[in-house]
Amino acid sequence: MPSAIEAIEALATGFATTFKHLFRRPITEPYPEYKRPLPERSRARIVLTRDPDGQERCVACYLCSAVCPVSCISMQSVEREDGRRYAAWFRINFARCIYCGLCEEACPTAAIQLTPDFEHCERDILKMVAEKDDLLVDHCGKDTAYNFYKYAGVSTDVGDKGTHVKEDKPVNVKSNMP
């Protein structure tokens, strides 16, 4: 018998709760009229950012495409005359992307970043396939200072051997000095 009373009490509580909700202000935000300001780190449209000196950050290392759980990133790396590695083409299929952010996490040069801009639906699915030109932006995104080639130790336009951050001058292999 006590259990029956408890059950009725529980039912009553439930009905009371939903009834009270009737008079609460709905939490719904009417989307196109009101656009909630999204946090900087919310994950939507992917962009390719640039170095502080304006060069493409992406070195086409394939890590984002490797880590992508839905395989929506593909690219081809090539070498520029000055030694920089970059993407000859870079393609993200947003129709397939699940905006998990693993690519951003994997990116060693802070090139690929997710932005809060989520409004990019298209009626033609091929328009959801973004190429490098669509992805490249002309700012640094969240990391405003990092320049991969200042640390990498390879010779590029950013610097020759021994001129990067925390590097000694190259060894003169033909010297006899210890």
Partner: peptide, 9 residues
């Protein structure tokens, strides 16, 4: 904390 030895290629 030190710096890296480098070589020319």
């Amino acid at each position: 904390k030190g710096s890296k030895r480098t070589h020319h290629d």
